[in-house]
Design a protein around this nucleic acid. Structure first.
Lengths: 236, 236
DNA sequence: ACCTGAACACCGTTCAAGT
DNA sequence: ACCTGAACACCGTTCAAGT
C-alpha cells in the first residue's frame, strides 16, 4: 500500500467500461460464499472490484437489486438431475441437488425473493410434479407432498450453517452427552436414557435420514388415489 | 412535540431505576412482533422505553445480548401440550405448539442461538423422545425422526412469513394458475396439467398435510426395531 | 453513459462525564 | 449503580460534478 500523499491513485483501478452487472454479481457471490451476507457491503464489494462504491449504482438501482441478481444467478446454477431408474430415486436426486445448492451458498436462504416466482424454482417444481404424476398421485396430494419435501429441505438448509461446525468437532457429541446425562432423571427421563447410548448424526446424515423417511412414505402411498379421509382434506 | 429550544426535557422521561432487563426484553418483543427484526434498533427501542440509547448498555453488554434474552424469553413461553391419548397425537400437538410459537414471533428464527443449548428446546426434545421411546424406536431411529420433524417445522416456519400474504390474497392462486398455464407445454407438461385443476393450500394447511404425512410414516414404522438396511445406517 | 467525492441520515458502540 | 451527550467508525444512498 502506497503512502505517498501526493499520489492521487493509490491502487490499480480497473479501466473504464470494465465494470458490468455480471462482474458485480460474480464478485458478490465470491464475497458471499467466503464471508457471508453481513460481509457484503457496497464499500467492500467495490473494493474487491477495484472501484469506488458509487460506481455500482450505475449498474444496479440499490443493494437489494444486487442481491436479487445474485439469487437469480445462483438458482440458475441449479443442476437438474437426469431422470433416474425410478421416480422415487429421481425425487431423491432432485431434493439432494436442491439441498446441495442451498448449503453451497448459505446466503441464498436469506435473500428475500419477495413474491416473484423464480424460473429455476419453476423447473424444480415441474420436475417434482412430473415424478409425482408418474406415481399416480392426484393433484391435491401431489401439491401437498411437494410442499412437504421442499419445506423439509429448507429446514435442513436453514439448520446446516449453524450446526455444520458440530460435524467437525469430535468433542461436540461428548459434550451434549454429558449435559444430558447431568439433567435430573425425574424430569428428563428420555434424554437421560438417550445419553447412555447416543447416536451421532452429521448434518448430511440427518438430511439423508429424513429424505429416506419422506420418500418411503411417498412410495407407500403411491398409486392409491386420494382417500379423502386425511385430516387436512376435511378442512374448508 | 414541543419545539421550545430552551426546554431541556422535551419528553416525559421514565424515572430513574425503572429501566431493567425485563422491561427492555418485553419492549423488544413488542417492537419485534409489530415491525420485525430490522425495526429493532437501539435508538428505537430506547425511544419506546422513554430513555436514551445509552441507558440500555447498563443492562445489556450489546445488542446481541438483548436478542439472546429475547430468544430465551420467547422459548420460555413455549406451552408444552398435555400428553394425549396416543403418542402420535402428542407428537402432533408438540410440533403444532412449536410451529405456533415460531410463526407468532417470526424474528425468533433469525436470532442466532450460537451453540448454546436452550433449556426450553431441551424440554421440547425430551417430550419428543419420550413419545418415540413409547413407540419402541431404537435410539438411532428416534434421533433421526426427531431431527426430521423439527427440520420440517423449521422449513414451514421459514416459509410462513414470506407466503402468509398469499393466504389472504384471493387473486394469488389465480395468478399462479395463469402463469403456469402460459408455460410451454413441451417443457412444462406437469405444471401445465396441474394448472387445469389447481388445489390451493394455506400455509397452515400445508403444515398440517406434511405433519400428517410424517406422523403416518412414524406410526407405520413404530414398534419395529431398527432394521439396519436403510441407506443412512450404512454410512461411516 | 459511466465514474466519482462530498455529504447526509442512519447504524452500534466507546468514552468520559454526570447523578 | 445508573443514566447521558458527544464522538467514532461504520452503513446505504442522494446529489452534483466530472469524463
Amino acid at each position: 500500500v502506497s503512502s505517498r500523499p501526493d499520489q492521487p491513485t493509490k491502487r490499480r483501478r480497473v479501466s473504464r467500461g470494465t465494470l458490468n452487472p455480471d462482474a458485480i454479481v460474480k464478485a458478490a457471490i465470491t464475497l458471499l460464499d467466503a464471508s457471508g451476507l453481513e460481509a457484503l457491503t457496497i464499500a467492500r464489494l467495490a473494493d474487491d472490484l477495484g472501484t469506488r462504491p458509487m460506481s455500482l449504482y450505475t449498474h444496479f438501482r440499490d443493494k437489494d437489486a444486487i442481491l436479487q441478481a445474485v439469487a437469480s444467478e445462483l438458482f440458475g446454477r441449479f443442476e437438474m438431475p437426469e431422470p433416474n431408474s425410478s421416480d422415487i430415486e429421481t425425487l431423491r436426486e432432485i431434493m439432494r441437488a436442491y439441498f446441495r445448492l442451498l448449503i453451497a451458498h448459505p446466503a441464498l436462504m436469506w435473500i428475500d425473493a419477495a413474491d416473484q416466482i423464480n424460473p429455476a424454482e419453476t423447473r424444480v417444481i415441474e420436475a417434482i410434479y412430473r415424478c409425482l404424476q408418474h406415481l399416480q398421485f392426484d393433484h391435491r396430494t401431489a401439491v401437498g407432498l411437494a410442499a412437504t419435501m421442499l419445506r423439509f429441505v429448507l429446514g435442513c438448509a436453514f439448520v446446516y450453517p449453524r450446526r455444520h461446525a458440530w460435524d467437525e468437532d469430535p468433542e461436540f457429541w461428548g459434550r451434549v452427552r454429558r449435559v444430558w446425562a447431568a439433567l435430573p432423571p425425574e424430569t428428563y427421563p428420555s434424554l437421560h436414557d438417550l445419553s447412555q447410548d447416543m447416536p451421532a448424526y452429521t448434518q448430511i446424515e440427518a438430511f439423508e435420514f429424513g429424505l429416506d423417511a419422506l420418500l418411503a412414505g411417498v412410495a407407500a402411498t403411491a398409486g392409491k388415489p386420494g382417500d379423502g379421509d386425511s385430516q387436512t382434506s376435511k378442512r374448508a
